[in-house]
Design a protein around this nucleic acid. Structure first.
Lengths: 204, 204
DNA sequence: GCTTGATTTGACCATTCGGTCAAAGCAACG
DNA sequence: CGTTGCTTTGACCGAATGGTCAAATCAAGC
């Protein structure tokens, strides 16, 4: 009943409910600000029942973080050195923006973790994350050196993609407050803006 | 001994120490994740002593938020409709980036508040913030309509400035992890990158 | 040195926290 | 039916939480 696949249908259902509730609560209040009672209530379970499926509050949090970074980095992983440079970057931006649109809670969970100093995933940042970014930054630098895109700092290019796409999930209430209730979906316009931004930035 | 100016030198000193400690703790753990004991210890005071200066945990937090939004919006307020459009935007970006560099804890406090749904400043977002952004977005739209800058969605332009500049404060540990310990100061390169980004985006 | 008011603190309180446990409920299967 | 093992829960625990209070300490003016 642990990291391996759940045995029964009821286990699967309850574990999913707990993780979903935990995502709600952790992404809004952070690890320390979240309480087990809160998660249990959101999951429709009693606290001891929740702790029957996950031994500790930390275990719920860890299960959520596990795999999150991978999901988060998949779009960058897909950046193809053999593809058309501008199209590759734009596709990366589109995938990253779609992630913010479709998984805003996961984005905020990640943001919370980073804001708090990333105590539980720091090793992944300096290891897996840095390695991947180094690799793709070299690809982008190669494109620039070959004159296929305008010269650009590849690291800050990647940072800016992260920042702008994740902003729509992490700062959603601010975006909504500024755009007003009428514009209830900022993503189409955001996508257009970002596509043209990178087209102009990288045009040779 | 409240919102009015502190009476004595010792009050001034202790209130400052508490606010500084509160900034440390709240910006890292969020309101709910922060404890009064933690803040008191960071301020070098006993808990009852802290509560002698601020009646509640909430009062410390409120005192920190008060004025923060104003500081945060000052750079945008300074955007001059009569100035050179590109130079005005670039100056705004520079001021905003300097804010992240010089006040990263304030940036993270703000980020935490937004992440948690902005329960304490939502009215300011839909009021003061939206009004100012509407005003400046109209200015930028006017520049675009007059052909002084390339056509651009002014709201998403502003969002992107916020996102990219604040990213360096809010996601500092991630930026540091990726750039490695050697590049211990990302801000000069970030400034260069952002200046050229907006030069290219807005060039007619 | 004494007095007065500001400052500091140890002890304490009710509530909430994460977590435990034994017992009860329940489904499946012989 | 009865047994077996999975699931659920009420009651509970020690620690931490935000906050209180009366008493002690301290600084400054007389």
């Amino acid at each position: 009943m642990n990291t391996a696949g759940p045995r029964t249908r009821i286990q699967e259902k309850n574990r999913k409910a707990i993780l979903d509730a935990g995502l709600d609560v952790f992404s809004q209040y952070g690890f320390r600000g979240a309480t087990v009672d809160q998660i249990a209530e959101a999951a429709g379970l009693s606290k001891p029942n929740l702790l029957y499926y996950f031994a500790t509050k930390d275990a719920v949090h860890a299960a959520l973080l596990e795999g999150l970074l991978e999901t988060w980095l998949d779009p960058l992983h897909a950046l193809d050195p053999a593809g058309d440079p501008l199209a590759e970057v734009q596709a990366y931006v589109a995938r990253k923006l779609a992630l913010s649109r479709d998984y805003p809670r996961e984005s905020r969970l990640f943001a919370n973790e980073i804001l708090q100093g990333a105590p539980r995933i720091e090793h992944a940042l300096t290891g897996e994350l840095k390695a991947l970014v180094d690799e793709k930054a070299a690809v982008i630098a190669g494109w620039a050196a070959a004159g296929q895109i305008a010269p650009v700092d590849p690291y800050h290019l990647i940072f800016s993609i992260w920042a702008m796409t994740q902003h729509y999930a992490d700062f959603e209430v601010q975006v909504s407050a500024v755009l007003g209730p009428a514009k209830d979906n900022a993503y189409p316009a955001a996508g257009d803006y970002l596509q043209s931004l990178f087209a102009r930035l990288l045009a040779v």
